[in-house]
Design a protein around this nucleic acid. Structure first.
Lengths: 121, 121
DNA sequence: TTCATTGGTATACTCCGTGATACTGGTTAC
DNA sequence: GTAACCAGTATCACGGAGTATACCAATGAA
Protein backbone atom coordinates (compact mmCIF):
# COMPACT_ATOMS: atom_id res chain seq x y z
CA UNK A 1 0.00 0.00 0.00
CA UNK A 2 1.22 3.47 -0.77
CA UNK A 3 2.51 5.49 2.17
CA UNK A 4 0.10 8.24 1.38
CA UNK A 5 -2.97 6.06 1.48
CA UNK A 6 -1.78 4.29 4.59
CA UNK A 7 -1.42 7.61 6.34
CA UNK A 8 -4.87 8.75 5.42
CA UNK A 9 -6.45 5.51 6.54
CA UNK A 10 -4.68 5.53 9.87
CA UNK A 11 -6.20 8.92 10.71
CA UNK A 12 -9.90 8.66 10.19
CA UNK A 13 -10.56 11.81 12.16
CA UNK A 14 -9.32 14.99 10.64
CA UNK A 15 -6.05 15.48 12.38
CA UNK A 16 -5.55 18.93 10.98
CA UNK A 17 -8.89 20.12 12.23
CA UNK A 18 -8.18 18.75 15.69
CA UNK A 19 -4.81 20.42 16.04
CA UNK A 20 -6.32 23.66 14.92
CA UNK A 21 -9.15 23.40 17.43
CA UNK A 22 -6.68 22.58 20.17
CA UNK A 23 -4.49 25.52 19.27
CA UNK A 24 -7.47 27.85 19.19
CA UNK A 25 -8.47 26.82 22.67
CA UNK A 26 -4.94 27.18 23.99
CA UNK A 27 -4.83 30.64 22.49
CA UNK A 28 -8.01 31.74 24.25
CA UNK A 29 -7.39 30.33 27.71
CA UNK A 30 -3.63 30.20 27.62
CA UNK A 31 -1.47 31.70 30.30
CA UNK A 32 -1.24 31.16 33.99
CA UNK A 33 -4.33 32.92 35.23
CA UNK A 34 -7.38 32.83 32.96
CA UNK A 35 -8.68 29.43 33.99
CA UNK A 36 -8.14 29.97 37.72
CA UNK A 37 -10.00 33.27 37.44
CA UNK A 38 -12.89 31.74 35.53
CA UNK A 39 -13.04 28.95 38.06
CA UNK A 40 -13.05 31.39 40.93
CA UNK A 41 -15.88 33.47 39.53
CA UNK A 42 -17.89 30.40 38.61
CA UNK A 43 -17.44 29.26 42.18
CA UNK A 44 -19.31 32.31 43.36
CA UNK A 45 -16.60 34.84 44.01
CA UNK A 46 -17.78 38.24 42.88
CA UNK A 47 -15.63 40.93 44.40
CA UNK A 48 -12.17 41.90 43.25
CA UNK A 49 -10.38 41.22 46.52
CA UNK A 50 -12.40 38.07 47.01
CA UNK A 51 -11.24 36.68 43.69
CA UNK A 52 -7.72 37.84 44.41
CA UNK A 53 -7.61 36.04 47.73
CA UNK A 54 -9.00 32.88 46.19
CA UNK A 55 -6.11 32.53 43.76
CA UNK A 56 -2.75 31.97 45.44
CA UNK A 57 0.07 33.86 43.86
CA UNK A 58 -1.85 36.24 41.68
CA UNK A 59 -1.09 39.96 41.91
CA UNK A 60 -3.62 42.78 41.70
CA UNK A 61 -1.97 43.82 38.48
CA UNK A 62 -2.44 40.51 36.72
CA UNK A 63 -5.96 40.08 38.04
CA UNK A 64 -6.87 43.55 36.87
CA UNK A 65 -5.42 42.98 33.44
CA UNK A 66 -7.00 39.59 32.94
CA UNK A 67 -10.40 40.70 34.16
CA UNK A 68 -10.37 43.59 31.73
CA UNK A 69 -9.32 41.29 28.93
CA UNK A 70 -11.95 38.72 29.74
CA UNK A 71 -14.65 41.33 30.00
CA UNK A 72 -13.79 42.59 26.53
CA UNK A 73 -14.02 39.06 25.22
CA UNK A 74 -17.43 38.48 26.73
CA UNK A 75 -16.30 35.93 29.27
CA UNK A 76 -17.40 37.90 32.29
CA UNK A 77 -19.68 40.77 33.19
CA UNK A 78 -18.58 43.65 35.37
CA UNK A 79 -21.15 45.63 37.27
CA UNK A 80 -20.49 48.77 39.25
CA UNK A 81 -22.97 49.63 41.97
CA UNK A 82 -23.04 53.30 42.64
CA UNK A 83 -23.13 52.94 46.35
CA UNK A 84 -20.65 54.53 48.62
CA UNK A 85 -18.06 53.22 48.62
CA UNK A 86 -18.34 51.99 45.10
CA UNK A 87 -19.10 48.30 44.86
CA UNK A 88 -17.94 46.19 41.94
CA UNK A 89 -19.15 42.73 41.08
CA UNK A 90 -17.98 40.23 38.52
CA UNK A 91 -20.15 37.51 37.08
CA UNK A 92 -19.52 34.72 34.64
CA UNK A 93 -21.45 34.71 31.38
CA UNK A 94 -22.98 31.76 29.60
CA UNK A 95 -20.04 31.73 27.23
CA UNK A 96 -17.73 31.42 30.14
CA UNK A 97 -19.51 28.32 31.34
CA UNK A 98 -18.49 26.53 28.17
CA UNK A 99 -15.10 26.03 29.76
CA UNK A 100 -16.66 24.06 32.57
CA UNK A 101 -15.73 20.65 31.26
CA UNK A 102 -12.16 21.65 30.51
CA UNK A 103 -11.69 23.08 33.98
CA UNK A 104 -13.27 20.04 35.55
CA UNK A 105 -10.96 17.69 33.71
CA UNK A 106 -7.96 19.75 34.63
CA UNK A 107 -8.87 19.84 38.29
CA UNK A 108 -9.37 16.11 38.17
CA UNK A 109 -5.98 15.60 36.59
CA UNK A 110 -4.28 17.90 39.07
CA UNK A 111 -5.77 16.08 42.03
CA UNK A 112 -4.82 12.67 40.69
CA UNK A 113 -1.34 13.91 39.95
CA UNK A 114 -0.85 15.24 43.45
CA UNK A 115 -2.10 12.01 44.94
CA UNK A 116 0.29 10.07 42.76
CA UNK A 117 3.25 12.20 43.80
CA UNK A 118 2.36 11.86 47.47
CA UNK A 119 1.76 8.13 47.30
CA UNK A 120 4.40 6.48 45.18
CA UNK A 121 6.84 9.31 44.58
CA UNK B 1 -25.45 35.48 59.21
CA UNK B 2 -21.81 36.39 59.50
CA UNK B 3 -19.98 36.98 56.24
CA UNK B 4 -17.41 34.41 57.22
CA UNK B 5 -19.89 31.62 57.78
CA UNK B 6 -21.81 32.51 54.66
CA UNK B 7 -18.63 32.24 52.66
CA UNK B 8 -17.78 28.83 53.98
CA UNK B 9 -21.27 27.51 53.38
CA UNK B 10 -21.38 28.79 49.85
CA UNK B 11 -18.32 26.76 48.92
CA UNK B 12 -18.95 23.22 49.98
CA UNK B 13 -16.16 21.91 47.79
CA UNK B 14 -12.67 22.84 48.84
CA UNK B 15 -12.01 25.85 46.71
CA UNK B 16 -8.39 26.02 47.73
CA UNK B 17 -7.74 22.45 46.73
CA UNK B 18 -9.36 23.00 43.35
CA UNK B 19 -7.36 26.07 42.48
CA UNK B 20 -4.22 24.27 43.47
CA UNK B 21 -5.06 21.28 41.30
CA UNK B 22 -5.87 23.57 38.41
CA UNK B 23 -2.61 25.46 38.80
CA UNK B 24 -0.65 22.22 39.00
CA UNK B 25 -2.14 21.04 35.73
CA UNK B 26 -1.50 24.36 34.03
CA UNK B 27 2.07 24.19 35.20
CA UNK B 28 2.62 20.75 33.69
CA UNK B 29 0.96 21.22 30.32
CA UNK B 30 1.32 24.97 30.04
CA UNK B 31 2.76 26.65 27.00
CA UNK B 32 1.89 26.63 23.39
CA UNK B 33 3.13 23.23 22.31
CA UNK B 34 2.91 20.43 24.88
CA UNK B 35 -0.72 19.50 24.29
CA UNK B 36 -0.51 19.63 20.49
CA UNK B 37 2.56 17.39 20.66
CA UNK B 38 0.90 14.92 22.99
CA UNK B 39 -2.13 14.90 20.76
CA UNK B 40 -0.05 14.31 17.68
CA UNK B 41 1.84 11.39 19.16
CA UNK B 42 -1.34 9.88 20.58
CA UNK B 43 -2.80 10.16 17.11
CA UNK B 44 -0.13 7.82 15.84
CA UNK B 45 2.60 10.11 14.64
CA UNK B 46 5.93 8.61 15.57
CA UNK B 47 8.70 10.23 13.58
CA UNK B 48 10.20 13.61 14.29
CA UNK B 49 9.38 15.21 10.94
CA UNK B 50 5.98 13.57 10.95
CA UNK B 51 5.11 15.18 14.27
CA UNK B 52 6.60 18.46 13.10
CA UNK B 53 4.49 18.50 9.96
CA UNK B 54 1.36 17.67 11.92
CA UNK B 55 1.61 20.78 14.09
CA UNK B 56 1.27 24.02 12.14
CA UNK B 57 3.66 26.70 13.24
CA UNK B 58 6.02 24.69 15.38
CA UNK B 59 9.75 24.95 14.72
CA UNK B 60 12.26 22.13 14.91
CA UNK B 61 13.84 23.86 17.85
CA UNK B 62 10.68 24.00 19.94
CA UNK B 63 9.70 20.46 19.02
CA UNK B 64 13.15 19.21 19.93
CA UNK B 65 13.11 21.02 23.28
CA UNK B 66 9.64 19.93 24.22
CA UNK B 67 10.20 16.32 23.23
CA UNK B 68 13.34 16.19 25.35
CA UNK B 69 11.50 17.76 28.24
CA UNK B 70 8.56 15.42 27.94
CA UNK B 71 10.78 12.38 27.69
CA UNK B 72 12.51 13.37 30.92
CA UNK B 73 9.15 13.71 32.60
CA UNK B 74 7.98 10.30 31.49
CA UNK B 75 5.31 11.54 29.13
CA UNK B 76 6.79 9.93 26.04
CA UNK B 77 9.27 7.22 25.10
CA UNK B 78 12.00 7.73 22.55
CA UNK B 79 13.43 4.74 20.75
CA UNK B 80 16.40 4.78 18.41
CA UNK B 81 16.57 1.94 15.90
CA UNK B 82 20.10 1.22 14.85
CA UNK B 83 19.27 0.83 11.22
CA UNK B 84 20.90 2.81 8.50
CA UNK B 85 20.00 5.56 8.40
CA UNK B 86 19.18 5.79 12.07
CA UNK B 87 15.46 5.68 12.76
CA UNK B 88 13.88 7.42 15.73
CA UNK B 89 10.40 6.80 17.06
CA UNK B 90 8.37 8.52 19.71
CA UNK B 91 5.55 6.85 21.61
CA UNK B 92 3.16 8.05 24.24
CA UNK B 93 3.27 6.44 27.66
CA UNK B 94 0.38 5.45 29.89
CA UNK B 95 0.97 8.58 31.93
CA UNK B 96 0.59 10.64 28.81
CA UNK B 97 -2.82 9.16 28.13
CA UNK B 98 -4.10 10.67 31.36
CA UNK B 99 -4.36 13.94 29.46
CA UNK B 100 -6.77 12.38 27.02
CA UNK B 101 -9.92 13.85 28.54
CA UNK B 102 -8.46 17.32 28.82
CA UNK B 103 -7.36 17.30 25.20
CA UNK B 104 -10.70 15.95 24.09
CA UNK B 105 -12.58 18.69 25.88
CA UNK B 106 -10.31 21.33 24.48
CA UNK B 107 -10.70 20.07 20.94
CA UNK B 108 -14.43 20.03 21.47
CA UNK B 109 -14.40 23.59 22.72
CA UNK B 110 -12.19 24.78 19.88
CA UNK B 111 -14.46 23.26 17.28
CA UNK B 112 -17.59 24.73 18.83
CA UNK B 113 -15.88 28.08 19.09
CA UNK B 114 -14.89 28.08 15.43
CA UNK B 115 -18.37 27.10 14.40
CA UNK B 116 -19.79 29.90 16.51
CA UNK B 117 -17.47 32.47 14.97
CA UNK B 118 -18.30 31.30 11.47
CA UNK B 119 -22.05 31.20 12.05
CA UNK B 120 -23.09 34.19 14.05
CA UNK B 121 -19.93 36.26 13.78
C1' DT C 1 25.17 15.29 -9.85
C1' DT C 2 22.09 17.65 -7.49
C1' DC C 3 18.26 17.79 -4.70
C1' DA C 4 15.33 16.34 -0.92
C1' DT C 5 14.68 13.95 3.34
C1' DT C 6 15.77 12.62 8.20
C1' DG C 7 16.81 13.97 13.05
C1' DG C 8 18.16 17.06 14.96
C1' DT C 9 21.88 21.25 17.02
C1' DA C 10 23.75 26.17 17.21
C1' DT C 11 23.29 30.95 17.50
C1' DA C 12 21.16 35.07 17.86
C1' DC C 13 17.41 37.80 18.89
C1' DT C 14 12.72 39.57 20.46
C1' DC C 15 8.93 40.18 22.93
C1' DC C 16 5.61 40.10 26.34
C1' DG C 17 3.77 37.68 30.18
C1' DT C 18 4.75 38.02 34.69
C1' DG C 19 6.59 39.80 39.13
C1' DA C 20 7.73 43.44 42.70
C1' DT C 21 6.65 47.45 44.70
C1' DA C 22 4.42 51.48 45.53
C1' DC C 23 0.53 54.50 45.42
C1' DT C 24 -4.37 56.65 45.14
C1' DG C 25 -8.90 58.20 47.01
C1' DG C 26 -12.59 57.09 49.51
C1' DT C 27 -14.68 54.62 53.67
C1' DT C 28 -15.19 52.38 57.95
C1' DA C 29 -13.40 50.64 62.46
C1' DC C 30 -10.65 51.23 66.79
C1' DG D 1 -5.34 59.76 64.16
C1' DT D 2 -4.10 55.81 62.28
C1' DA D 3 -4.88 51.53 60.58
C1' DA D 4 -7.26 48.59 57.45
C1' DC D 5 -10.21 47.54 53.59
C1' DC D 6 -11.94 48.38 48.86
C1' DA D 7 -10.89 48.58 43.66
C1' DG D 8 -7.81 49.17 41.31
C1' DT D 9 -3.44 52.02 38.50
C1' DA D 10 1.52 53.23 37.67
C1' DT D 11 6.32 52.00 36.98
C1' DC D 12 10.04 49.30 36.46
C1' DA D 13 12.37 45.26 35.37
C1' DC D 14 13.34 40.46 34.20
C1' DG D 15 13.58 35.95 32.21
C1' DG D 16 12.45 32.57 29.39
C1' DA D 17 9.19 31.11 25.95
C1' DG D 18 9.15 31.48 21.36
C1' DT D 19 11.06 32.90 16.49
C1' DA D 20 14.38 32.99 12.59
C1' DT D 21 17.87 31.12 10.24
C1' DA D 22 21.49 28.40 9.20
C1' DC D 23 23.85 24.23 9.48
C1' DC D 24 25.29 19.10 10.01
C1' DA D 25 26.10 14.09 8.35
C1' DA D 26 24.03 10.36 6.25
C1' DT D 27 20.95 8.43 2.82
C1' DG D 28 18.01 7.88 -1.24
C1' DA D 29 15.80 9.47 -5.39
C1' DA D 30 15.77 11.76 -10.14
Amino acid sequence: MKEEVKEILSHPRSQTEEVQALQDTIYVIGGKWKLPIINSICNGNKRFREIERSIPGITTRMLSRELKDMEMNGLIKRTVYDSSPVLVEYESTEYCHSFGDIILQMIKWGKAHRKKIKAGK
